[in-house]
Design a binder for these strands. Structure first.
Lengths: 143, 143
DNA sequence: TATTGTTATACTCTATAACTATA
DNA sequence: TATAGTTATAGAGTATAACAATA
């Protein structure tokens, strides 16, 4: 039985190529990030907290397209791991400001370094110029 | 409360950009394909059957990175909708050859046309040359 | 009246174990 | 023994409804 299928039509579609690429990159990312026990979404949330200390849960939801009830679960897990701490919001009594704990900061500094290495590894068949072009074209679609 | 977060770090990452792009494209695809009641995965499976009549379930699984137990569910639904038919495999008694029914063929001809329109719509801010470049660079990563 | 954060829950997608029949 | 297809089920990920506290 031959295993080679004709996939030429699917390969002309932007969505097919974008999804396969995203899945490939995410797979590599998860392998390299396993040591830190961070999923891609975990990493995104913690990275935004890292670079936006005092951010609220609702802001994270909007930026990452995550629904509030699901964000609660992530934040609870981060608190339990002592990566994130909550402080009362200075002006809004309903909200809480989120920031990394010292352990969280240490972890994220290492994780962000690892994320960049993962990018380099996955895109090593692209020249530096091609990588820049790729990111520019991707942003033109979703941003 | 300001809603604008600093996402500059995340936006340097290939995985973040690829995932956001894939989600954007898939969202548009689902809107435009709703009339046919086809999810992106439904479409991929049916399109491969369309262009590879006689293909087996296992071949589809390998080509699309879908696990066999999950493929069973898809194929059952397609049979119930009378889009796909099974025939005994000519040489392997364990396998079954899959092909589109006449209704399935009619549906997929329209759906593939619609998929190309969805691509044009989602990538309309890219020149034709940029689209080709984008697909070429994406393939370099996952293929 | 609207918004933040939360609980409980449902639904979809994906993954694992184990079976049958054929090779 | 290995593979194709299948069943049942478990686990993520994502979705909706409804609530208390605050704006």
């Amino acid at each position: 039985m031959t295993d080679s299928l004709d996939t030429t039509y699917l390969e002309t579609l932007l969505g097919y190529n974008a999804r396969r690429t995203a899945l490939t990159i995410i797979e590599r990312f998860m392998e390299r990030m396993a040591e830190f026990e961070l999923s891609p979404v975990d990493f995104s949330v913690l990275s935004l907290i890292h670079h936006n200390p005092g951010v609220t849960s609702r802001q994270l939801c909007k930026a990452l397209n995550i629904l509030p009830p699901n964000m609660v679960v992530f934040l609870k897990a981060f608190e339990k791991r002592e990566l994130v701490q909550r402080k009362p919001h200075p002006t809004d009594g309903r909200a809480t400001g989120l920031s990394l704990t010292p352990q969280g900061l240490t972890l994220m500094q290492a994780a962000e370094q690892r994320a960049m290495e993962s990018d380099l590894s996955v895109a090593k068949r692209l020249t530096s110029a091609e990588q820049k072009t790729l990111v520019r074209l991707l942003k033109k679609i979703y941003a």
